[in-house]
Simulated assay, not measured.
Amino acid sequence: MTGTSAIGSSGLRLGLMRGDGIGQDIVPATREIVDGAMSSVHAQPVEWVELPLGFEAIDSHGTPIPDETLTALEQLPGWILGPHDSASYPSEFRGQLTPGGVIRKKFELFANIRPAAVLSGVKATVPDMDLVIVRENTEGLYADRNMAVGSGEFMPTPDLALAVGVFTRAACERIARTAFALATRRRNHVTIVHKANVLTLTTGLFRDACRTVAADFPHVVVDDEHVDAMAALLVRRGGDFDVVVTENMFGDILSDLAGELAGSLGTAPSINVSDTRVMAQAAHGAAPDIAGKNRANPTAMFLSSAMMLDWLADVRREPVLSAAASRIRNAVNATISSGIATADLGGLASTSEFAEVVYAHTLRR
Rank of each mutant, 00 (worst) to 15 (best):
I7V: 13
S9L: 12
G11R: 05
L12A: 02
M17A: 14
T30K: 02
G36V: 03
A57V: 00
H61P: 01
L70N: 08
E74C: 11
G78N: 01
G82E: 08
S86A: 14
A87M: 00
F93K: 13
Q96A: 13
P99I: 07
I103T: 04
K106I: 01
F107T: 03
L109G: 06
A116D: 10
T125F: 15
V126P: 00
M129G: 01
I133Y: 03
G140V: 10
R145Q: 12
P158V: 04
A161R: 11
A163Q: 03
C172Q: 08
E173K: 12
E173S: 07
T178E: 15
R187L: 11
N188G: 07
I192T: 05
V193D: 12
K195E: 03
L199H: 13
L199E: 10
T203Q: 13
T212V: 13
V213R: 01
D223W: 11
D223V: 04
E225I: 00
H226W: 00
A229D: 11
A232Q: 15
E247M: 06
I253H: 09
L254M: 10
E260Y: 03
E260R: 09
S264K: 09
T267C: 15
I271V: 15
T276C: 04
H284W: 10
D289P: 08
A291R: 08
D310F: 03
R317K: 14
L321P: 14
S322K: 03
R329N: 10
A334C: 07
S338W: 01
I340M: 10
E356A: 15
Y359N: 04
R365K: 08
